[in-house]
């Protein structure tokens, strides 16, 4: 059975691409060098990855291999040393609201209310909408993440989990083309983590925004993803392997756990990480 999966991943990596009109995000020969006192440190080199429209991709890899580096380069927050990144065929230049980011720390403005935090982005992205319309957008997404009672609570008064919910609402509300998530649930307890995964996937099922999410949690990676991308260890990290997750959507956690393929996927990922 496992050979079948291996064959599949081979086909995808070797074919190196899909019809170009389906590609949302394209990383080509990406390279990142950090200058350090002891000379240049090459974190990423020859990294190639294509992500389709409406695809949910999770990324796993050893700590320090360069996942955050790659994601922040896609976000435009970290300069590219070589190669290029394009969204819908156009090279990116710096950050922009077409690539929403959910950071590991919720990074809400603590002096603003939940609603104001979401509005900050909405105002910026929909300047032509009326004030009422923008308010409705922000409230809609806050409701979606289950915060209908906390619109006017200050971010500093919210729990970590609630803050990250606002972070999710803020990211979806600006309707980005690509959503980038860097271990968004890494700081939460496992119960809250599960809740937020459900919320995230529920909104995502509706909006189908192309998503790239870094995680350390193999189960999370399988549950959420259409494909799991495995990065090799640094320095000079690149894409090591790609695993297709063929569960139908919408998924429930129960169905996924009971699926015959689940443990094969899991074994594949753990084998990769343990090498």
């Amino acid at each position: 059975m496992s050979t079948i999966i291996e064959n599949k991943t081979k086909i995808i990596t070797e074919a190196s691409g899909f019809p170009s009109r389906d590609v949302m995000l394209d990383l080509k020969d990406l390279k990142k060098v950090y200058p350090t006192p002891k000379g240049d440190y090459v974190v990423l080199e020859d990294l190639n990855l294509q992500i389709r429209k409406e695809e949910f991709v999770t990324i796993i890899g050893h700590s320090g291999c360069g996942k955050t580096t790659m994601l922040s380069m896609i976000a435009g927050l970290n300069p590219i040393s070589g190669g290029n990144i394009s969204v819908l065929g156009k090279h990116i230049k710096g950050p922009g609201p077409d690539r929403g980011v959910i950071f590991q720390a919720p990074s809400l403005m603590p002096w603003m209310t939940a609603l104001q935090n979401v509005m900050l982005g909405v105002n910026q992205v929909f300047p032509d909408a009326t004030k009422g319309q923008r308010n409705d957008i922000a409230k809609y997404y806050l409701q979606k993440v289950g915060l209908e009672d906390a619109f006017n609570k200050r971010a500093s008064e919210l729990s970590q989990g609630m803050q990250q919910r606002v972070g999710i609402a803020r990211a979806f509300a600006i309707k980005p083309k690509v959503l980038l998530l860097d271990e968004p649930f890494g700081m939460l307890d496992s119960l809250t983590r599960g809740e937020l995964q459900d919320i995230l996937i529920e909104i995502w099922n509706k909006e189908k925004i192309t998503a790239v999410m870094i995680t350390h949690d193999v189960d999370e990676a399988i549950f959420l993803a259409d494909r799991v991308v495995m990065m090799t260890s640094g320095p000079r990290a690149k894409i090591g392997d790609v695993l297709d997750i063929d569960f139908e959507r919408p998924r429930t956690r129960k169905a996924v756990l009971e699926h015959d393929d689940y443990y094969k996927y899991r074994k594949h990922l753990i084998d990769f990480l343990e090498h």
């Binding site: 927050l77 950071f103 403005m109 900050l120 600006i174």
Partner: peptide, 9 residues
């Protein structure tokens, strides 16, 4: 916070 400001332009 600065990154949020940058992403939102």
């Amino acid at each position: 916070y600065i990154n949020v400001a940058k992403v939102l332009k």
